[in-house]
């Protein structure tokens, strides 16, 4: 029984050598993880565990920093740094502001 992130030795196609410059939001996600780690609020293994818990469909579909973000949010909720309710309200507020701007 092999977990879906545990890829060593599985059959796969050619290595596509595409690269992209990281977008600002991706850099912010990266920076948030580093800073949360520095402050003792999150461990790399917690990030990995949360990514490993996303489910194989989400793991396949999401981009790298989408996975990180989903995992950081999960751990921040678990640790009580932010609540589900706060996130829900803040996201609604952001979407509303954006809709007004359009």
């Amino acid at each position: 029984m092999r977990a879906y992130h545990d890829l060593g030795g599985l059959p796969a196609g050619p290595v596509e050598r595409a690269e992209h410059d990281y977008a600002l939001w991706e850099k912010r996600v990266d920076a948030m993880l580093v800073l949360l780690g520095d402050k003792g609020l999150m461990r790399t293994d917690e990030l990995r565990r949360a990514i490993e818990g996303l489910g194989s469909a989400a793991y396949e579909r999401m981009s790298y920093y989408e996975r990180w973000l989903a995992a950081i949010v999960e751990i921040m909720i678990e640790r009580g740094v932010v609540t589900v309710d706060e996130l829900g309200r803040k996201m609604a507020e952001i979407e509303e502001r954006r809709d007004e701007a359009l």
């Binding site: 029984m1 092999r2 977990a3 545990d6 060593g8 030795g9 990995r48």
Partner: peptide
């Protein structure tokens, strides 16, 4: 093959 977070790859 325990459930949970493990850093020992399956192939080893």
């Amino acid at each position: 093959s325990p459930p949970g977070h493990v850093r020992t790859p399956a192939y080893a």
